[in-house]
């Protein structure tokens, strides 16, 4: 209803979540989540902390296990079958709040590790791909340094490049700019914008509402483990329907 198909968005389904529920112990974190993501969509998930938005995208590559409902990624259902899980994970890139680069490996090794071991790409080819993506995130000159020698913004860009090296069909971003200094947020967002412009399917948990306006074709607002409202960004920001959304927006855009 709300998501009128946009120009770049195809009608091929990338992710389909239906009636998904998740509990931590007895705490009901995700309640009846229904979400269909089409290929090429750029979705921003917003919401107060503890609303389950990170948990939702972590369920998509099974870093968290859901207890009820169904998640289909690229036509494969997520179940406890390890083969399926590894297959989906190699198709779905993930960028974390705290980068999670491997500190004992150089930047280049960080980027080539998964292609070499999971995709069985020859080392030389993997290195070429890695350098290509490092150039894209504008840090090829750091390739032989270790993550600890880079700034936070650079590390996050490496993390994005590392995910891209697997040539994923879907990218998940879990608050990619929340651990960064204000000066570095822009460089990471720029990278994400250029990625979006190339038609990557993206789901992004973030508090960067400027980014949401500029890039997203759909904004989802979550609260208390449920999807409260979703809409095109213009409508979402200018004309929020639910009082909970109105309150949230007034709080984060208010100052």
């Amino acid at each position: 209803m709300a998501n009128a198909p946009q120009l770049q968005v195809s009608d091929e389904i990338a992710i389909e979540i239906s009636k998904m529920n998740k509990w931590y112990g007895t705490f009901h974190v995700l309640r009846d989540i229904d979400l269909t993501v089409y290929r090429g969509e750029r979705i921003v998930i917003a919401g107060p902390s503890g609303s389950g938005k990170s948990t939702l995208i972590r369920c998509i590559n099974r870093l968290e296990e859901h207890q009820q409902g169904r998640i289909m990624v690229d036509g494969t259902e997520l179940s406890s079958d390890l083969k399926n899980i590894d297959k989906i994970r190699s198709e779905v890139g993930m960028v974390f709040q705290h980068f999670n680069l491997f500190p004992h490996l150089t930047i280049l090794e960080n980027c080539t590790l998964a292609p070499i071991w999971v995709r069985k790409t020859p080392k030389r080819e993997a290195e070429e791909t890695a350098m290509h993506f490092l150039e894209k995130v504008k840090i090829p000159e750091q390739a032989n340094k270790y993550p600890g020698q880079l700034s936070g913004g650079q590390q996050q860009r490496v993390a994005i490049a590392r995910s891209l090296c697997m040539k994923p069909r879907i990218m998940l971003f879990d608050e990619p700019t929340s651990a960064l200094d204000p000066e570095m947020i822009k460089e990471v967002l720029d990278t994400m914008v250029s990625l979006a412009e190339e038609g990557m399917t993206m789901i992004c948990v973030t508090h960067e509402m400027g980014f949401a306006r500029q890039v997203a074709n759909r904004v989802i607002f979550m609260d208390q483990g449920q999807i409260v409202e979703q809409n095109e960004p213009e409508e979402f920001f200018n004309n929020p329907k639910s009082p909970r959304t109105q309150l949230f927006l007034s709080q984060i855009l208010g100052h």
Binding site: N61, L63, D86, K87, R89, S90, E91, V92, G93, M94, F96, N100, L101, F102, L113, A114, W117, V118, R162, S163, M166
Partner: peptide, 10 residues
Amino acid sequence: QYEAADSLGL
């Protein structure tokens, strides 16, 4: 570190 390794499909 575990999550990053998992998310890359290792």
